[in-house]
Amino acid sequence: MIQFQYERASTAKAAVNALTNNANAKIIAGGTNLVDLMKRNVMAPTKLVDINALPLREIRQQDGKISIGAMALNSQVADDKLIIEKHPLLSQALNAGASAQIRNMASVGGNMMQRTRCHYFYDTALPCNKREPGSGCGAMEGMNRMHAVFGTSEKCIAVHPSDMCIALVALDATVLVTGPKGDRRIPFEELHRLPGNQPEKDNNLQKDELIISVEIPDNSFSKNSHYMKIRDRASYAFALVSVAAALNIEGKVIKEARLAMGGVAHKPWRLKEAEKALVGKPATEETFRQAAEIAMQGAKAYKHNAFKLKLGPNVIVEALKNAAGLV
């Protein structure tokens, strides 16, 4: 790891200033991803701005929404009574990610900012357009079992690794960020981006913007939601495919639905067309199967990840069955 400057920011403004003044500065919160990447020489910021002193750890109910501070720990959110009661989907998703120790370190903001776990991104001896623009995509013709089936580009087929973000995108969250020009709100679905021609950019934050909090509007999904993650071992592994499913069922009819997938795209993959197909239908396996088919439209497989085209819809159906209490 290179030697770098280290600075503790005492205000969000100071942190933003530090970013503005040094193009090679990075924010460090839990460090669970950044320190790892720095050890492997994948990232080499010359300055780290520690934001752990910022008062951004609170989880609170505001009018019509819950606000979670960007520095709230993953474990803190997962275990929070309010979250478990109102958004159990988020709690489940958080607990499906990483390990207890990492969840004790990782912040909510950092979780959103984590980078892909693509093998080619991680190994500086191999080509990767995300790490070194123009060097090529190692995964495209390589070992791409873990890779994306939606929204890929010629340049990159990496997936976003977060579980938390899959729940947040399903729950219509909004991210609050601050920057040199002040605060702004970003709908969660627009926070992360597809690789396109600029796979080095994971998200739509400006380089000197800082995440302050994330808000989840109140909803009617707490009774019927489920996060299902399929991976290569029973715990502590990234998703092959994961699904966040949330239903508002009245009588036996689906009144509202939210559906998102992980492990399939460069960003948390919201399935709005499939959601539409669920609304107004009875909560049955047949309905779910039809929605799953719609969800997979436009999916494109590579050499080693064709199984996701079959696993994906199966997991959607299973997650919905669990959400609806059919299992």
Binding site: H119, Y120, D123, A125, L126, G142, M143
Partner: peptide, 10 residues
Amino acid sequence: VMDHRFGRYV
């Protein structure tokens, strides 16, 4: 798993 194009484990 090895990527045989590079002879390198992934």
